[in-house]
Design a binder for these strands. Structure first.
Lengths: 108, 108
DNA sequence: TTTGTATATTGCAATATTACGATAAAAATC
DNA sequence: GATTTTTATCGTAATATTGCAATATACAAA
């Protein structure tokens, strides 16, 4: 089929899955890393940093935006992107909780 | 095409992308949550916990195993699964570093 | 040895993702 | 206004993912 059965899972499960799915591609990880490489937001130039064609990069940026992982503001004929800190925190919080629960567990 | 161009990215980028990709499905998030719900490893019964057919669950377990996120040991005719703490820590470490770098940044 | 239980594999259909060329849109610059 | 620069969208091909029925495998118990 190819379509995910989201309706059977909780909102939280779907939310975390959407965030991790959006990060589940090396190009999108590379974009995130580039966006934190400077002290300000990154205006333009993202395409030149990646080994992919411009439409492909644009598509990856769109997916990160859809997952609310990055924000883009139009600045002249360039677009300034930065990471949405809140979404990163959501990921950290979620997996920290899991790690905490794992401390009290014994694996066979 | 559909095939990811992994060869253009760093090992670390590919590693994180593989981990997040494996977690990028609500069923696999639900499996992880079920595996931390008890104090021991979970032996059998995973299929009954999910709203999906047995082959589908088996496939999701396989993907989590391939990403080294869970470990399974055969115990009679059941299989005992538990989470690989190290992989969860890898995720936490990676995104904590990103969050730290974000603290020193100003978004436009 | 047969039966039951738990999990894996195979094969397939439906859909999603990845990637890119061509083209469009929007703004700056000449 | 024409040109350049930057990003988005469209269309399309190749491949991947999701999900399940059917079947296989492996072990336990009767």
């Amino acid at each position: 089929m190819g379509a995910t059965k989201t309706e059977h899972f909780t909102d939280k499960q779907n939310e975390i899955a959407l965030l991790t799915k959006a990060l589940g591609h090396p190009a999108r990880i590379a974009i995130v890393e580039y966006l934190i490489s400077a002290n300000n937001c990154i205006c333009g130039d993202i395409v030149n940093e990646l080994p992919l064609a411009q439409p492909t990069v644009s598509q990856h940026l769109k997916e990160l935006k859809n997952a609310d992982l990055i924000k883009g503001t139009i600045e002249g004929n360039a677009i300034c992107y930065c990471i949405n800190e809140k979404s990163i925190e959501k990921i950290i919080d979620y997996f920290l909780k899991i790690a905490t629960k794992l401390k009290n567990k014994q694996c066979c």
